[in-house]
Design a protein around this nucleic acid. Structure first.
Lengths: 192, 192
DNA sequence: TTCTAATCTAATGGG
DNA sequence: CCCATTAGATTAGT
C-alpha cells in the first residue's frame, strides 16, 4: 500500500490541488510562524522552509529536490533572497555557471533553500545574462552597421572621383598636369 | 485514496495518460463540464491542454475579489487561462491595446477573472509584443548589415579595378613627367 | 526512463 | 502605466 498522501507537483493539474492542499495546510500548520520581515537579518541565512515531516523515505536519493507542494506551507509570500544569499549565489555562479548535483545540494544547505530553488535561480541567472548579451550583441551590430555605412559612403565617393579622373585624364589633363592621381587626391581632400 | 497515488508517481508524457489524469482530476476536484477545444487563433500548434477546470469555488476564492487588497495569506499559485479566455483576451487586445476602466471590468466579468488579472494580462501582452518587435528589428538590422557588407566588398573591388586601370594607363606618362607624389604612390602599389 | 535546459506566462513590486 | 524580476508550469532535448 502506498503511503503517499501528498500530491506530487508533477501532476499536471497540480494547481487546484495545491490550492486545496495549501488551504488545508494553512489551517493545520497555520498561523504560527512568521518570517522575519526585517530583511537585514544580520546573522545567517534565515531558514525559510520547514519541510513537513515526511514518511520515511527509504534511502536518500541523490536527488530529493521534489518537495511537492509544500512551498506554500506557511508562506506569507514569495521568496525574497537576502543579501547574503544573493552574494553566495553570485559567488557560486562565478565559479561554475552550471551546478553539479553535489554543489546544488550543498548550496541549498548553506542557503536554507530547497535545491529546486537553487536550481531555478541558476537557470534564471543564465537566462538573464544571455538576454543581456543579446542586447549587447545587438548594440555591437548597430555600431558595426554604422561603420560599414561610413566606409560605404567613402568608397562610393572615392570610386566616383577616380572614375571622373580616369575619364577626364584620358583626354587631356593627364598630359598637362601629369598626375591623375594627384588630381584625385586633391579633389578628395578638398576639405582638408 | 489510491487514485492520488497513481497520479503522483509520474508521467506527464503520454497523451492518453494525460487525458486520463485530467479526467480523474476533474472528477476529484469536481470540475463540471469543460468547454472543449478552443479555436486557437494565434499561431502555434494546437495544444492539447485546453482543459483546465477552474471550478474551485470554495467560497470567496477567486472571482469575486476586487483588486486592491490582495490577500497574501493564500498564495495564489498559478492561474492558467482557458482557451476561451485567451481567445477573448486576444480579441479584445486587437480592438484596443490599452484598456479603459470600463472595459477592464467588463472583460473581467465575462472572463470570470479579477480586473487586476485582466490588467496584468494586458501588460504582459504588451511587453511580449514589444519584445518580439525588438527581436524583429534586430534581425532587420542584421540583414541591413549584411547588405552593406556586400556593397562594401563590391565597391572595394570596383575601386581597386578602376585604380589599376588608372595607374596602368598613366604609367608611361607618369614616369616621364616624374611627379614625386605619384612615384611614391606607384612604388607602394606596384605589386597590386 | 529520468533529468535538466529552455520557454512561456502569471504575478509582484518599484518608478 | 512601464519596466524588471520572480517563479510556476510546460515543452523539448540529451
Amino acid at each position: 500500500m502506498s503511503t503517499v498522501t501528498t500530491i506530487s507537483s508533477t501532476s499536471k493539474e497540480s494547481l487546484e490541488v495545491e490550492e486545496l492542499v495549501d488551504t488545508r495546510l494553512s489551517l493545520v500548520i497555520g498561523a504560527g510562524s512568521q518570517p522575519p520581515p526585517a530583511p537585514e537579518a544580520a546573522g545567517h541565512v534565515a531558514r525559510q522552509h520547514g519541510k513537513r515531516a515526511r514518511a520515511v523515505h527509504g534511502g536518500s536519493d541523490i536527488d530529493d529536490d521534489d518537495d511537492g507542494g509544500d512551498a506554500v506551507g506557511r508562506a506569507r509570500k514569495k521568496l525574497r533572497l537576502t543579501a547574503e544569499q544573493a552574494a553566495l549565489l553570485e559567488k557560486s555562479v562565478r565559479a561554475h555557471n552550471v551546478l553539479s548535483h553535489g554543489e546544488k545540494h550543498d548550496l541549498a544547505g548553506q542557503l536554507g533553500l530547497k535545491p529546486r530553488q537553487v536550481e531555478v535561480w541558476f537557470q534564471n541567472r543564465r537566462a538573464r545574462t544571455k538576454l543581456k548579451q543579446t542586447e549587447l550583441d545587438c548594440e555591437l551590430l548597430r555600431r558595426w552597421c554604422e561603420r560599414l555605412s561610413d566606409d560605404n559612403a567613402r568608397l562610393r565617393r572615392e570610386l566616383a572621383e577616380t572614375r571622373a579622373v580616369l575619364l577626364v585624364g584620358g583626354a587631356q589633363d593627364l598630359t598637362f598636369t601629369g598626375c591623375p592621381s594627384c588630381n584625385r587626391l586633391a579633389g578628395g581632400r578638398r576639405a582638408a
